[in-house]
Design a protein around this nucleic acid. Structure first.
Lengths: 340, 340
DNA sequence: CTGAAAGCGCTTACAG
DNA sequence: CTGAAAGCGCTTACAG
C-alpha cells in the first residue's frame, strides 16, 4: 500500500493504480469516463486519488492532448508604467480562466512598442494555444502577424485596422456617456457639458456621441471643451467649461484624468464637486476611486470572459466569431455627483 | 526535403531531423551540446532549425525534465480592486522571467482573503515549480501551508510571522525616507515635517524611522501628524501640518495617498506644491505621476529579479537563502519639490 | 468491465 | 561523432 508522498514529490497515476490495485487506465477512466468503471472499483480508485492528492500532470496531458491549455497575454506598458487597465483586466482573466479550462501565461518585453517577437517564441514552443491582446493601436504589427500564421487570438478593443477581424470585445463608450447624462439629469443638474479629447480618436469620438445623443433625447444643450489626456491640459480646459455650466451644472468627461482636471479646478476655486458642479469620468480607474469621482466603469470581468470564450471557440471550430461583442459599461456613482 | 509548416502546425524534432538528414538526437545535441556535433553537420542542422522555425516543445521538455519551467503568482486584490503595486510587479516578473529560464503563470480567486486552495491545485498538477507571493499579512495562511509541503516560494515583502523564512525581497523604507529628507534639505526647504500612518504598522514605523534618522543627521527638528491611508483623513491631518512647516517648509509622507492629501490642501489654499511647500510621497504610484508628486519609487524590476533568483536557488539547492534582501528604493523628483 | 500497447516530443545515458 | 533505446505521465482506441 503506497503511503502519502511527502515533500516535493507528487503522486502519479501509477501510485494511484498500485494503491487501488487496478491498472493505470482504470484510474484514468475513473476521472474521464467514470461510467465505464464498476461502481465499487470507482469508489476505491477515487478514495485513493483523494488520499494521495492526485491530479494528472499538466505536462503529460498537454503533450498527449497536443494542447497547452494556456492563453498568453503580453503585459504592455510604456517602459515601466503599465496601463491602468492592465491589473483589473489580468485579474478578470485569471478569475475566469479555470471556467475555460485554461490558465494564463504572461510575457513582456522592455521594448517601447509591442512587436511580434515574443509572440513568435511563445507560439513556437507551444507554451500557449492562443493569445489575448490589449492596447492595440493603428499600425500595430501584432494582429496581422498572428492572423497570417492563423494563430488564434482575441483582442480587448476593436482592431480598427482590420474590420474583418471579429474576435474582439469592447466597451460601448456611447452607452456609457449616455448613461452618464441620464444619471446627471435624474439628479437634477441643469446644464450638462462635455470635456473630451480632440476630435479624431475613435474612442473619444464614440464617447462624445453618447453625450450628444442623450442631450438631444433630454432636449438639452450643453457647452463643450477639449483637452489632451493629462492633468495640466485638463485643468486649463476645465476653467472655461466650469464657467459655462455654472453652479448646478455638470460635466461629462472622456476619461478619469479629464474628470480629475475639473475636480482640481473646483477645489482651487473653493467649490465642492457634486454639490456645486457635478462630474462624471470614464474608466473606473484608481484615480476615480481616490478622488470620489463618479465614473463609467469598464466591465473587466465580462470582457475577459468573452475573450476567453472567443479564443476557445476558435480552438474548437477553427473559425472566427460572427461578430465582435460590445459590452455595456456601468456607471458607479460617487461623491462627485452627490448634490447634498 | 520537408517544407515549412503552414497554418497552426509547428515543426517537431523529427521534421528537423528528416530535413537535415540526421537522427533526432543529433538535432537535440546541436541545441544542447553543439560541441558533440561535427561542424558541417551542426551547420546543416541549425540551418534547418532556423528555416523550420523549430523550438523544442515546452510540454515535452517539461515532462522529460520533470520541471514545469514556470513560477506561479496569485493576483491578489480586494475583490475587483487590485493593489497598485500589482501591475508594475507583474511587469517586472514577466520581463525578468526569461533570464531565469521560466515563465509566469497567474491565478486568482474572487475570495476576499487569500487562501491556499489554488496553490494546492497549481502545485498538484505540476503546473508550476514554485511560487512568488505578494501582500502577505499577519496570520496569512499561505506561507505556512507552502512551507509545510516544502513548496519553493519567495515573497515580495518580509513574512513577519515567520522570521526564519529568508526567501524574501523588500524595500528599505528607512533608506527611502532618509533620501527624501536629504533631497529636501539639498533643495533648501527649511522645516521638514512628517505625515505618517498611525504607530504600529511595521512598514509605516520603518519609513518614519528614516525621517527621524535623517533629521537628526542634519541637526533638524520637524513636526509630525498621522492619518489613515485615505484621502479624506490625509487632508484633515495635512491642514495643521502645513501650518506648522509653513512656507518654504516640506512634508515627507508614508505614502502617495497621504502626499496627495497635502497636495490637495495646498491647492485649496491657493498655494503651489513645490514652490510654497515641498512634498515627497512614497511608492511611485500612478497617483504620484498624475499629480507631479516627487516620490520614493519601489524598484519593482529588481525585486522581481531577486525573487526569481531566490526561487531558482531553492529549486537547485533545496535550501533557503541565507538572508532576505533589502533593496534601496529610488527617489524620483517631480514638480512637488521644485522651488523655482 | 478491465488490461496491454501505442504514441504525444523530447533528452540522456549507452552502444557502435 | 552518430544512432537505437528507454522513459518522463498520460489517454485513447483496441483486445480480451
Amino acid at each position: 500500500m503506497a503511503t502519502v508522498p511527502t515533500g516535493r514529490s507528487r503522486a502519479t497515476i501509477i501510485d494511484v493504480a498500485q494503491a487501488a490495485g487496478v491498472s493505470r487506465q482504470t484510474v484514468s477512466n475513473s476521472l474521464k469516463h467514470p461510467e465505464r468503471v464498476r461502481p465499487d472499483t470507482l469508489e476505491r480508485v477515487l478514495a485513493e486519488i483523494d488520499r494521495l492528492d492526485y491530479t494528472p500532470s499538466t505536462a503529460a496531458t498537454s503533450l498527449r492532448d497536443q494542447r497547452a491549455g494556456a492563453v498568453g497575454i503580453e503585459l504592455t506598458g510604456l517602459g515601466t508604467t503599465p496601463s491602468e487597465a492592465l491589473a483589473p483586466f489580468l485579474l478578470g482573466l485569471a478569475v475566469h480562466a479555470p471556467a475555460h479550462d485554461c490558465h494564463i501565461v504572461t510575457f513582456a518585453t522592455d521594448a517601447d512598442r509591442p512587436e511580434p517577437e515574443r509572440y513568435r517564441s511563445m507560439w513556437r514552443s507551444r507554451l500557449v494555444d492562443a493569445f489575448v491582446m490589449m492596447d492595440t493601436h493603428p499600425d500595430d504589427p501584432r494582429p496581422g502577424w498572428l492572423r497570417e500564421r492563423r494563430v488564434p487570438f482575441a483582442s480587448f478593443g476593436r482592431v480598427w485596422d482590420d474590420p474583418s477581424f471579429t474576435a474582439w470585445a469592447d466597451v460601448d463608450g456611447r452607452a456609457g456617456t449616455s448613461d452618464a447624462v441620464d444619471h446627471l439629469a435624474a439628479r437634477g443638474y441643469e446644464r450638462i457639458g462635455w470635456l473630451g479629447w480632440p476630435d479624431g480618436s475613435a474612442i473619444g469620438d464614440e464617447r462624445r456621441s453618447g453625450w450628444v445623443d442623450a442631450l438631444e433625447r433630454h432636449g438639452l444643450d450643453g457647452p463643450e471643451a477639449r483637452a489632451e489626456q493629462d492633468l495640466v491640459s485638463a485643468m486649463a480646459a476645465a476653467e472655461g467649461l466650469v464657467d459655462s455650466v455654472g453652479g448646478g451644472g455638470a460635466i461629462v468627461c472622456t476619461s478619469d484624468v479629464l474628470a480629475l482636471g475639473v475636480h482640481q479646478v473646483l477645489l482651487r476655486r473653493g467649490l465642492i464637486p457634486g454639490r456645486d458642479v457635478g462630474i462624471v469620468g470614464f474608466d473606473g480607474s484608481q484615480t476615480a476611486r481616490t478622488h470620489g469621482l463618479t465614473s463609467v466603469h469598464q466591465p473587466y470581468g465580462a470582457i475577459a470572459d468573452t475573450l476567453l470564450t472567443q479564443v476557445h471557440d476558435q480552438l474548437t471550430d477553427d473559425e472566427l466569431p460572427s461578430a465582435g461583442v460590445m459590452l455595456a459599461p456601468e456607471l458607479v456613482p460617487d461623491a462627485s455627483t452627490e448634490r447634498t
